[in-house]
């Protein structure tokens, strides 16, 4: 790994100052489970790494306010899957976060980091899209909200501007009854990156929201009904790579869509 300067700011102001000083060759470090891999491989060669975990007010809490579950940027996958409020309202997110890497990874990896990494295959992205997540972003200029559906721009690219920091993710607590689920396809049964993944939710009106990953340059959100699963999954644009071929991925989306819908309907009825 090539040397870099390491900063561990204690205030947001210091974070923003460091981001400005070292832009554009600066990286934010939270859980580090993706960043460290890229630092080692040399894909990222920053001058500076800003560790945000000890910033005053940096939240590792999951707080419910005004119909929204706010997941702090410091919340790890382990924290997330064990939170009763998440389990109650967002079962597909629990299913997805439970299979992100291994226990050791989930003990470090944050939900915010998973989306900032902007992997097309990120497991938490599909359920977050389905649940209408909104990303709360801060910078020297102030704060803003970015709907997750507008957050991903391409592999590894997000709508975050230079100097911006994700502080939390809002999950609107469903007001109407809905059932939701998550599915993925992997090459082996233990810890693996998704060959493709998918989440869906369905309400009593039969409206289906579905999102899938590793099937397009970004995780895609589509809507339709139980009768239009084929049309919905046909919007994918999968590629062939070492994890799977395009045709297989495309076919698996439909299989996962059916299965996820079946589970979702079961949950809706409960």
């Amino acid at each position: 790994m090539q040397p870099f300067a390491y900063f561990r700011p204690e205030s947001r102001g210091e974070v923003f100052a460091a981001l400005r000083e070292f832009a554009p060759d600066v990286r934010i470090l939270a859980g580090g489970t993706d960043l460290m891999v890229r630092l080692r491989s040399g894909r990222f060669r920053p001058n500076a790494v800003v560790d945000v975990k000890r910033v005053s007010g940096w939240s590792s809490q999951i707080v419910e306010t005004e119909g929204v579950l706010r997941v702090g940027a410091g919340v790890t996958m382990t924290d997330l899957v064990s939170a009763p409020s998440v389990q109650q309202h967002f079962p597909a997110l629990v299913e997805a976060a439970s299979v992100v890497g291994s226990v050791q990874i989930r003990n470090r990896a944050t939900l915010a980091g998973n989306i900032c990494n902007a992997s097309p295959a990120a497991d938490t992205a599909p359920p977050l899209l389905v649940y209408g997540a909104v990303v709360n972003v801060a910078s020297r200029a102030g704060e803003r909200q970015i709907p997750l559906s507008e957050f991903f721009l391409g592999p590894g690219r997000t709508a975050l501007a230079a100097g911006e920091l994700v502080e939390s993710i809002d999950l609107p607590i469903p007001v109407e009854a809905a059932g939701s689920a998550f599915q993925r396809i992997t090459r082996r049964r233990g810890v693996d990156l998704a060959t493709a993944n998918l989440s869906c939710s369905v309400n009593r009106a039969g409206e289906v929201r579905m999102a899938f990953g590793a099937a397009a340059p970004i995780p895609l959100l589509v809507t339709g009904t139980a009768a239009s699963l084929e049309e919905m999954t046909a919007q994918a644009r999968p590629i062939s790579d070492v994890r799977g071929g395009a045709a297989y991925r495309q076919a698996m989306l439909l299989v996962m869509a059916r299965r996820a819908l079946e589970v979702s309907l079961g949950r809706l009825r409960q």
Partner: peptide, 21 residues
């Protein structure tokens, strides 16, 4: 997982943690 240690009681991959963290 060969580098697993407990960091503040939690299992982590020590290859994915900077020492300074």
């Amino acid at each position: 997982g060969a580098c697993t240690v407990l960091l503040d009681g939690k299992a982590v991959n020590s290859c994915l943690v900077l020492a300074v963290e």
